[in-house]
């Protein structure tokens, strides 16, 4: 493959993207060193990279990462159990669904995280507040997607089940739930992303917990390279989380 063709290919485009990103950071480094950008506002990218081993060792980043992940895990379990149950309930009782589905939709658009002072009063400045905000923020997409998945089950599958005289319980576990699973997982993925965003955000806002608190602490100490490094670590964590959940979703999606 000629260089020109390779540069136009998908891999070539990606390489250009990565090169441009690296070139951007090199440019920022050069501008700061030339005194055109104030290094007391934007630290040198090389300093940021050098700060990463320090914040990993001294600030216990891995422990904080595990703490945040533990909060995400608790919120995820609650989102899955409560969200799917409510979705199934709404599917089973159509009147309830018609009455409440638009409310759940409005809840998905509502700025739930703004309730954090209220949760602070109820649950105190603790991990419970963080987990509960994550749970409430991630609930709506799971409910909506569970209803969508169950309601979208192909009639032929239900008819086959009826022809085999399956019990209502068998119909749910053997037909409805497996058919709805891809849609349910889309909702779960959205819910988990919402939960994670809100959990890290509330950790930062109330200065408690894992990675969010770390950024707040480093910023308050005016440790600029550390603050930028910790932000980079959170971005990497989010990217990893996003990627893993996307791969699981693709794996669950039926082959078309």
């Amino acid at each position: 493959m000629r260089l020109k063709d390779w540069a136009r290919s998908r891999n070539g485009a990606r390489a250009v993207g990565v090169t441009a990103t690296v070139a951007f950071f090199v440019l920022v480094e050069a501008l700061i060193r030339a005194g055109l950008v104030n290094q007391f506002i934007v630290p040198l990218p090389s300093q940021i990279i050098a700060s990463i081993p320090r914040i990993i060792a001294e600030e216990h980043v891995l422990d904080r990462f595990l703490q945040t992940m533990q909060e995400v895990l608790w919120a995820s379990v609650m989102i899955a159990v409560v969200g799917i149950s409510i979705g199934v309930l709404f599917f089973k009782f159509r009147g309830l669904r018609l009455a409440c589905e638009s409310w759940v939709g409005a809840m998905a658009a509502a700025p739930i995280v703004l309730l954090y002072p209220l949760f602070l009063v109820i649950f105190g400045r603790s991990a419970t507040t963080i987990v509960m905000i994550g749970f409430v923020a991630g609930l709506a997409p799971v409910i909506l997607k569970t209803i969508e998945g169950l309601a979208g089950t192909r009639a032929v599958l239900l008819n086959v089940g009826r022809s085999f005289k399956v019990t209502p319980s068998q119909q749910f576990w053997k037909i409805l739930l497996p058919a709805a699973l891809p849609s349910v997982f889309v909702g779960l993925r959205l819910g988990l992303i919402f939960a994670m965003i809100n959990i890290v955000g509330v950790e930062f806002l109330i200065n408690f917990g894992g990675l969010g608190q770390l950024i707040n602490e480093l910023a308050e100490r005016y440790d600029l390279p550390g603050t930028y490094g910790a932000i980079g670590f959170v971005i990497l964590t989010s990217m990893l989380f996003f990627d893993v959940t996307a791969r699981i979703e693709r794996w669950l999606r039926p082959v078309e």
Binding site: R10, A13, R14, V16, G17, A20, T21, I193, M196, I197, N198, V200, G201, F204, L205, G212, I215, N216, A219, T227, Y228, I231, V234, I235, S238, M239, F242, D243
Partner: peptide
């Protein structure tokens, strides 16, 4: 192909962490 993945990855990060910056 070169840059959209950056948008897709940065999109779901919690933006409030950029507040100190």
């Amino acid at each position: 192909q070169a840059f959209e993945s950056l948008l897709l990855y940065l999109g779901p990060t919690p933006k409030i962490i950029f507040f100190p910056v």
